[in-house]
Simulated assay, not measured.
Amino acid sequence: MELSDIRRDYTRGGLRRHDLPEQPEALFDKWLKQAIEANLTDPTAMTVATVDASGQPYQRIVLLKHFDKDGFVFYTNLGSRKAGQLEANSKISLHFPWHAIERQVHITGTAEKLSKLEVMKYFSSRPKESQIAAWASKQSSRLSARQALEGKFMELKQKFAQGEVPLPTFWGGYRVKVSSIEFWQGGENRLHDRFLFTREGEGELWSVDRLAP
């Protein structure tokens, strides 16, 4: 089969202006809950896009850990490539690809580092193996072999066998302050519904535009 022959119809329904709340977080909350109820694999998984100093975009999958009117939160190694790029250019893009329910959400904004208290609170809630893995992995650095990573993990697992795992100084998180949110709902005959919420100033007022598919 040719790749150009792969297609399907989108028939799950549309999105109309009268369906939209005043605040986009309310619609995102509704859609996320429906994605979870639909038993999608990793419904909180999002593509995180950043840009390096030369303008080259990079993307990776990260899990959303919290959101509210103040922004969208994720955690990472502060020595990672994405963290280094955000240090130089805080502009960021998030994308939720909920293919099975024919929806997408695209977010643009700026990333701000979380406070140590926020990071500590989340880190302490993680499974102990995940805490140890944060210590073991120097994220984005080159590895000679997987065995080196596994060996480091086992070494640290023994070291932290008793007691709590301390928060690494190189581990943290970001809150994405939203500039725009686009909601995409698949439609019949490729006449998809797209609505773009754009923040007006620094407050909670949003302009809403319907975009052509």
Rank of each mutant, 00 (worst) to 15 (best):
V178Q: 00
H99C: 14
A161D: 13
R175F: 03
V105W: 07
K138W: 10
I36F: 13
K159G: 15
S179P: 12
T11F: 03
S144P: 10
R146Y: 13
K82Q: 10
F170S: 10
S80Q: 05
Y122F: 15
A35R: 01
L114A: 03
P166R: 08
L32V: 09
Q162L: 14
L3D: 02
L64P: 03
F160H: 04
P213S: 12
E202G: 10
A88W: 10
F96H: 03
A45H: 08
K128N: 13
T50A: 13
Y58N: 14
G71C: 08
Y122E: 11
L156E: 04
W171M: 09
G84M: 11
T110Q: 02
T44V: 07
W98G: 07
V105D: 03
K33E: 10
K138Y: 05
Q185R: 02
L94A: 04
K30Q: 13
P213V: 13
T110R: 08
R8I: 08
R60N: 06
E182M: 07
A161W: 03
L149E: 00
Y58E: 02
K91Y: 12
P21Y: 01
L64S: 10
R12T: 05
R16N: 10
Q147S: 11
S141F: 11
A49I: 08
F72G: 09
E129L: 10
F96G: 05
K82F: 01
N189R: 15
D9V: 15
A35C: 05
D19K: 01
W135Q: 13
Q59G: 09
F96R: 04
A53G: 10
Y174W: 07
L211A: 08
H66A: 12
M1A: 08
E188R: 06
S130G: 01
L156C: 12
L156K: 06
E112L: 01
D5P: 11
D52P: 00
S140W: 14
L205A: 08
R142G: 15
A145W: 00
F67R: 04
V176L: 15
G203Y: 06
L117Y: 14
P24H: 04
E87I: 10
L27V: 08
L3S: 14
K138N: 07
T108W: 02
E164G: 01
E202V: 12
L196W: 11
L205P: 10
V48C: 09
A134Y: 11
P166S: 12
K82I: 09
K128P: 00
R146K: 15
L156H: 10
R81I: 06
F197N: 05
L114G: 01
S130T: 15
R12G: 12
K177R: 09
L196R: 04
R126Y: 07
A161E: 08
Q158M: 15
S54N: 12
F195N: 02
D68C: 09
A136L: 00
V208I: 04
K121T: 14
Q147W: 07
L15T: 06
A53R: 04
L63H: 08
N77G: 02
Q147H: 15
P57V: 00
R81L: 13
F123T: 04
L191H: 04
T110M: 09
F197M: 05
H18A: 15
F72D: 00
G14Q: 05
G13K: 03
S141K: 08
E188S: 10
S130Y: 07
L94G: 06
R142V: 15
V178G: 02
S207T: 11
